[in-house]
Design a protein around this nucleic acid. Structure first.
Length: 269
DNA sequence: CTCCTATCCTGCGAGC
DNA sequence: TGCTCGCAGGATAGGA
């Protein structure tokens, strides 16, 4: 389940694989049925195009070309890999490179997307997004302002992409544990000091996960196939009924906003 | 306006 | 052993 660190890890993996001179010869859509249909014009318009650079915004991964930008979102189970004569069941899009290699996007659950937009125009899916969690724009004053007078559970608030991008179910649980705040707490009841600490912990848990190469949960792998290691560092996520590593209290799993939320009843108030 | 719920999809693991 | 069923969850539309 790729969250921001996983997407960042995939981006770095792809940068390594592609180098600085990769040129797209053609794009072949095997199955356009992703979360949104893969635009049929992509094969017609994107040909013999050098990949100038890769970039990321929120959980979107971009291949920047001269006129266009390819947009890839991994959804839950999306992966990029280089073919090794192994076309698989859930392969959806092939990017054929001039050097003969083929980069392929696979996605069993089809929650991801593959689109493109003109470099000269705004990408409509980014319009409502909040700041990047690792940027200075995401700070305690900002979060404090956003939490005021809100009844929504703090976990839902930090997972809301309009508030801050890239924080998914796993890292939301982890950051709240590190802050000592229950995921169910109403946003408006978060103190200023807790806001400061929550911002620090969101940043640090994401940063550490990126350093560790992301987390291998379910189907996630770094581009190129190597697994990340951060899942071994989870303090609460997926640890229902286990003893808290800090106080030995049994970790609970509560459904919040339809998502599993793991927390320690003793460490988190 | 604020907040919540259903929906998309397939693989996997629990339970019988 | 083999089957069914519920769950995993990012993003968003639509409803309360």
């Amino acid at each position: 389940m790729p969250e921001l660190p996983e997407v960042e890890t995939v981006k770095r993996g792809l940068e390594e694989i592609l180098g600085t001179k990769a040129v797209i010869k053609k794009i072949k859509v095997l199955n356009p049925k992703l979360r949104f249909p893969v635009p049929s014009e992509v094969s017609k318009l994107i040909k013999n195009a050098p990949i100038q650079k890769l970039s990321r915004r929120a959980k979107y991964l971009f291949f920047e070309l001269d006129k266009y930008v390819l947009s890839s979102h991994l959804g839950m189970t999306g992966t990029w890999r280089i073919y090794a004569d192994d076309r698989k069941k859930h392969d959806h899009v092939e990017i054929h490179l001039e050097d003969g290699r083929v980069l392929v996007y696979a996605d069993p659950r089809k929650f991801g997307l593959f689109e493109f937009f003109k470099k000269s125009e705004d990408y409509h899916r980014l319009g409502h997004l909040g700041p990047e969690p690792l940027s200075d724009e995401f700070n305690s004053e900002y979060l404090w302002e956003k939490t005021r007078k809100k009844q929504v559970a703090i976990k839902n608030l930090i997972m809301n992409q309009e508030i801050v991008v890239g924080v998914g179910n796993i890292y939301a649980s982890e950051a709240l544990f590190l802050t000592g705040v229950r995921p169910t707490r109403k946003s408006g009841k978060i103190t200023k000091k807790e806001c400061e600490e929550l911002v620090i912990h969101i940043k640090s848990v994401l940063d550490k996960a990126i350093q560790a190469g992301g987390s291998t949960i379910s189907d996630f792998k770094k581009a190129g196939g190597d697994a990340g290691y951060f899942q071994h560092s989870f303090k609460v996520y997926g640890r229902e009924k286990e003893a808290c590593s800090v106080c030995s209290t049994t970790i609970k799993n509560t459904t919040i906003g339809g998502r599993s939320s793991f927390w320690c009843p003793s460490c988190q108030k």
